[in-house]
Simulated assay, not measured.
Amino acid sequence: MSRRLQVAVLAVLSAVALACEGEAGSAPGEPNEPPRDDLPGSMAALGDSITAGYGTCGPPLSCLRNSWSTGFDDDVNSHYRRIRTGNAAMTDNAHNFAEPGARAADLRGQADEAVGVNAAYVTVLIGANDACRPSLEAMTPVADFRKQVDAALGRLKDGLPDAEVLVASVPDVYRLWETGHTDERAVAAWNHGICPSMLANPASVADADRDRRRAVDTRIEDYNRELRRACRAYGERCRDDEGAVHRVRFTLDLVNHLDFFHPNVAGQAAIAEKTYPY
């Protein structure tokens, strides 16, 4: 590809990304219901590509407008939209600090950003990238994962003592493999290196591959256990989702058809519906 063509392609992708992400305040309309004084007036989203709405606008890029947490698309009906309906103070006051590829080790820095905007409500969804590594050995050890989550939650508790925090569970990636490993499109996408610890050799039912997948599944269960414990140790201002995201049955209709891994708009809507706490 020529240099000129490369520049042109990057320019188009950048323009699409900006159009996809927009700002939370771009949502049309204003709340029509009486205001509720139990709803927060600002929020921040922490996490990885799931919370960044990756792949939901078409290209393989973040698309914040479709985030289950802070998105403003009608079809997602995010936490932001639901809260804004009851509290107009939320308008233009949602911030998404989630980053594709983020792991628990990156959560502390995102917590700093949430403190910086004085968020009254913070959502956390982390852990998929800690499990989705090139090998089983490269997965984040459970003890390290817990320490990293505790560090982030500790920062929120110190910096935002009055904020409400929601800690969501890690999605069931094993269930996704079960659903898609006989679909030629999913197998072709996964063979490009999507979550290799779980999805490598996706069509194989050899004992070694079965054992590898089960090991990743167990690690995700361990992460979810520690997320619950960390939230409960935080105190009454932290709610865990009681495994709600993990129980979402992600069929291929709920993931994008670029990588057959990340939730599409319908998948984001399902997460929003299952986790909304108010």
Rank of each mutant, 00 (worst) to 15 (best):
G243V: 04
P171D: 09
A230H: 06
S135W: 09
V187K: 07
A168S: 10
A208F: 02
M139H: 00
R133S: 05
R225T: 13
P161A: 09
V170G: 10
L136A: 04
R219P: 09
R232H: 15
H192G: 14
V142M: 03
A186C: 06
Q148W: 07
E221A: 11
R212Y: 01
E226H: 11
I194C: 02
Y234T: 00
G235V: 02
A244K: 15
L153C: 07
E137K: 14
L136Y: 03
Q148D: 06
R213N: 11
R185P: 03
A151Q: 00
D241S: 07
R185C: 04
L156M: 05
P196G: 11
L160Q: 09
K147V: 05
R133A: 06
P202Q: 00
V149P: 03
D222C: 12
D130G: 13
L160E: 14
S169G: 12
M198D: 07
R219S: 15
D130V: 00
C195A: 01
R229V: 10
R239Q: 06
G159Q: 12
C231Q: 01
D211S: 12
A131F: 05
Y223G: 10
K157P: 12
E236N: 13
Y223C: 13
R185N: 09
C231Y: 08
A203K: 13
L136D: 06
V173M: 04
E226D: 11
Q148M: 05
G243T: 10
I194N: 10
T140Q: 07
C238W: 04
D158K: 10
T179H: 07
L176S: 04
E221V: 02
R239E: 13
A230Y: 06
W190Q: 01
R214D: 15
E221P: 07
R214F: 15
G193F: 11
D144H: 02
N201E: 12
R229A: 14
M139F: 05
K147M: 07
E221R: 12
N201R: 09
A143L: 01
R146E: 14
N191Q: 07
A143D: 13
S197L: 01
L227M: 03
C195Y: 03
V142D: 09
R210N: 08
A143G: 09
I220P: 13
A168V: 08
R228A: 14
D162Q: 13
A138G: 03
F145Q: 13
S135Y: 07
G159P: 15
P141S: 02
G180A: 03
E221I: 12
A168Q: 14
E178H: 12
R237K: 14
V142I: 09
D222H: 14
C132I: 02
V167W: 00
R239I: 03
R210L: 11
L199P: 04
R133L: 00
E221M: 03
Y234L: 03
L227Q: 07
V165H: 03
Y223R: 15
R239D: 12
E184L: 11
R146H: 07
L156I: 06
L199W: 00
P141M: 01
A203I: 10
I220G: 09
D130A: 00
S197Q: 01
L160S: 12
E184M: 14
L153V: 04
G180V: 02
D172A: 13
H192T: 15
W190N: 03
E242L: 00
T182C: 08
D158H: 12
V165C: 00
T140A: 05
G243H: 06
E226V: 08
P202C: 00
L136M: 06
R214V: 14
A138L: 07
P161L: 09
A151K: 01
